[in-house]
Design a protein around this nucleic acid. Sequence first.
DNA 1: AAGAAAAATGTAATTTTTTGACATTTTTAA
DNA 2: TTAAAAATGTCAAAAAATTACATTTTTCTT
Lengths: 283, 283
Amino acid sequence: MNILEKITQNKASFSKSERKVADVILANPQTAIHSSIATLAKMSDVSEPTVNRFCRRLDTKGFPDFKLHLAQSLANGTPYVNRHVDENDGPADYTNKIFESTMASLEVARQSVDVQVVNRVVDLLTQAQKISFFGLGASASVAHDALNKFFRFNVPVVYFEDILMQRMSCMNCSTGDVVVLISHTGRTKSLVEIAQIARMNDATVVGITSADSPLSHECTYVLSLEVPEDTDMYMPMASRIAQLTLIDVLATGFTLRRGNKFRENLKRVKDTLRGSRYEKRNE
Amino acid sequence: MNILEKITQNKASFSKSERKVADVILANPQTAIHSSIATLAKMSDVSEPTVNRFCRRLDTKGFPDFKLHLAQSLANGTPYVNRHVDENDGPADYTNKIFESTMASLEVARQSVDVQVVNRVVDLLTQAQKISFFGLGASASVAHDALNKFFRFNVPVVYFEDILMQRMSCMNCSTGDVVVLISHTGRTKSLVEIAQIARMNDATVVGITSADSPLSHECTYVLSLEVPEDTDMYMPMASRIAQLTLIDVLATGFTLRRGNKFRENLKRVKDTLRGSRYEKRNE
DNA sequence: AAGAAAAATGTAATTTTTTGACATTTTTAA
DNA sequence: TTAAAAATGTCAAAAAATTACATTTTTCTT
C-alpha cells in the first residue's frame, strides 16, 4: 500500500485545499518528508490544520505518521529486481544479477507458500514412521539435502536417486510413512508414478512442486512454490533454491514442534563432528 | 545506506547508554518508528537528550530525521539478519523468518564475493580437462547440484560422496584438472587432505569456503563466502544456499564464456528431457 | 591510589512542531 | 435567496524535540 499511489487515486475525493497539498507533495515528495507541517502549509498556500486533515484523510495518525509512510513509499524501490543475465555481462554483472534474481525469486516464493499446509506437513513429519525424500535431476540434490537435515532428527529417513530404488521403496510403504516428492515442473513421469505407488500403499504423499501439475494431483498435500525461473539459462536455478529454503522451513518447524530438549540433542549431533575437524583457534 | 546495519556496525563505538538505545531499536524497529523520543528514552532507560545524541551520532539531523531513515530501512524490504526463529513462533512466523533471513544472508554473501576470483575460476573451468566437485555433509548436496549443472556442459565431471572415492579420484588427477572443494567451515580434515592430494598431482584446487580457514590455505583459488549462519538451529542453512548460488554464478559464467552456439546446445540437452515428462497443455 | 581532566549522562528550561477548539468563509441545495 | 453543510483558517493548547548547563562517571596522569 504505497501512499503516493494512494494520494493519486484518492485525489478526486479531495477538497480544493487538500488537492493543493497533494500536488505539492506529489511534485516533490523528497522535500515533503524533510519539511515541517508549517513549511508544507506555506508551500501549498494552505493552513497548517488543513495539511493535518489531509494526512488523516489518508488513514494516517497525523502529520509525522504521514511522513513516515511517505518515506517508506519513497524507499520502496522494489528491493530485489529480477534482472536477467545478458550476453555482454562481465563477471561483476552476472554475479550480482544472479544473486539479486535469486533473492527476488525467494521473495516471490515466500509469498506463494501456504503456511496452513506447512503446518499440516510439519505435523505429519513429526509423527511419521519413516520419511522418504525423492527427486530427480536438479531436485535430486534437494532431496539429498533434505536427507542430510532430517536424518539428524533421529527419524528413519530414506533417499534414493535411482528410480527403481525409489519405486521399490514406495512399494514397501505402509500407514504412517510420509513420502516427500520434489519436482519443479511436476511433470516428471516416473515421479508421478511413484506418488501413485506410495498412495496405494497407504503412505501420505507430500509434493513440493508447482500448483496444478500432474504430480500435484497425485499428492495428499501439495506445498506449491511459485518461482519465476530464468528460462534463458536452460538450467533450474531459482526453483531449487526455493525448494531448499522450504526444506529449511519444514526442518525448522520440526525442531520447534519437538521442543527444547530436542534442540539440545541436535547440538550433540553437531558436536559429534568435532573430531573430524580442525579446531578453531579463537573459540 | 541502511541505518539498521549502520547501528549494528557502529555499535562498538557507542557509549553505554547509546548502546542501550541501539538495543531497544534493533529489538523492535517497528515500534521505534512509531514512538516519541520520550517513549523511546523510557524504553531504553535513558534520558531524552541521550536518544537525541544517539541519532546525531548516526549522521542524522535529529530524532525525527532518524525515524525517517529508520522507516526507509524497514520499508526497503531489506530483511535484516537479526530475525531469528523463536520458540513460540507459529508456522507463518518461522516460514517468513527463514525466507527473509535466507535472503538477507544472500545479500551479505553477494557483497563478500570477489568477482576477480570468480572470473579466474570461470576461466579455469572452461579450460578444464576434468572437473571434480567434492563436499561432505550439507556441502555434499551442493557438490551434487554442481554435478547436475556442469555435466550438461559436456565436460567430464566427477562427484563422489565417499571420502575414499574422493581421495582416489584426486590421486588420479593431472594438469588441467580442476577440483572444486565445498565446505562452509573449511575445517573438515578429510577435505583439507584431499586438497593437498589434488595439488600434489598438479590439479588446480578451487575452494568454496570461509576465508582464512585451513582449507582455504590449501587451495589455488579461494572463493570465500561470508554467510551469517543462525547457529541456534544447529544445521547449515544459509551457507549452502549461498554456495549453490555461487555455483549458479560459475555455471552462468561458463555458458557466457562459451558463447551463443553453446547455449543452443544447452537447450537441446534440456529438450531431451521431454520424453520423460507429461506435456504441458498450454505451450 | 588520588585527583584532575575529559567524557558521558541527566535535569530543566526553551523552542519548535503538531494538534484541537472554535470562528469564519465557502459551497451546496432547497 | 437563504439555510445548512462542508471546508478552511485563526489562535491557543499540548506534545515533542532540542539546547544549555549541571552532575556524574570514566579515564588518564602522577
